[in-house]
């Protein structure tokens, strides 16, 4: 399959500290690709760089054939990438409905937005019940649903998801992964960052390990023993 997202030699730095030290990877069209790695390895930095929130120092990010490294975030959304950020980042003082409307900010098709809202409310009945409530009053799991639904409102070709299961109860995590599988079935390509390696390996077609700002392993879920993956995803391959 052709690569929808192709990242080459990407370097992103905070001041003099390089968080990404030349990352290269590909996300195939129509796949669920997963990025695993310990805290501080650069997973969120990679997501934020791809979404345009952080400006990479060097390297290239190609999406559907065109270069997007360094483009403004709203330009990247326009091209069809949506990020479900770490810690959800719902708008706490806006209603659930307004959160979803904000997700459709760049669209002008009133009817299309209305029918997508209906679809979201059908898929996430809890959001419909709470549509007039402010985002900040929702539970963690509901906020995660809202964050996913908000990203979907832009009708993305590629969904970036940064630790969608973080801090959620096991049943809710199960639900999140069901949603990921559904999205994939509907034709959305998904690039997922996860701490929960066990769940991630169950849905992913391909995965990468990132350690200290570099990709250290790439393969299919069966290509490395799961306990080895989990060990390196949580602790890194310490060479002590």
């Amino acid at each position: 399959m052709a690569a929808l997202l192709e990242i080459k030699d990407l370097v992103t730095a905070y001041g003099r500290i390089e968080a990404l030290r030349g990352v290269s990877l590909q996300v195939a069209q129509g796949s669920i690709t997963c990025l695993l790695g310990p805290n501080g390895a650069g997973k969120t930095t990679l997501m934020m760089s791809t979404a345009g929130i952080l400006r990479p120092r060097s390297g290239s990010i190609r999406f559907a054939g065109s270069e997007i490294a360094g483009a403004a975030p709203h330009g990247i959304v326009e091209r069809g990438i949506a990020l479900v950020p770490e810690n959800r980042l719902v708008f706490p003082h806006m209603t659930v409905l307004e959160n979803l409307q904000a997700g459709a900010y760049q669209r002008n098709d009133r009817d299309g937005i209305a029918s997508d809202l209906e679809r979201m409310f059908a898929r996430f009945p809890r959001l419909k019940e709470r549509s007039a409530q402010e985002g900040g009053t929702l539970s963690g799991g509901e906020q995660q649903m809202l964050s996913v639904a908000r990203a979907l409102m832009s009708r993305p070709k590629l969904m970036l998801m940064d630790e969608p299961s973080l801090g959620l109860a096991p049943l809710v995590v199960e639900e999140i992964f069901n949603i990921i599988k559904e999205l994939h079935r509907d034709g959305t390509t998904i690039f997922l960052v996860e701490q929960n390696a066990h769940m991630a390996l169950k849905v992913a077609h391909h995965f990468y390990l990132i350690e200290q700002g570099r990709i250290t392993f790439s393969g299919d879920p069966g290509s490395l023993a799961e306990d080895e993956v989990i060990h390196r995803a949580y602790l890194g391959s310490a060479k002590a």
């Binding site: 929130i53 950020p85 706490p92 904000a102």
Partner: peptide, 23 residues
């Protein structure tokens, strides 16, 4: 208005507003 929605989003969580495609 749509502009007002963007203003409130930007005030509420600037990064999330950017991710929603707001300039």
């Amino acid at each position: 208005t749509r502009f007002g929605l963007a203003v409130r989003a930007v005030i509420d969580v600037p990064v999330a507003a950017q991710l929603a495609g707001i300039n």
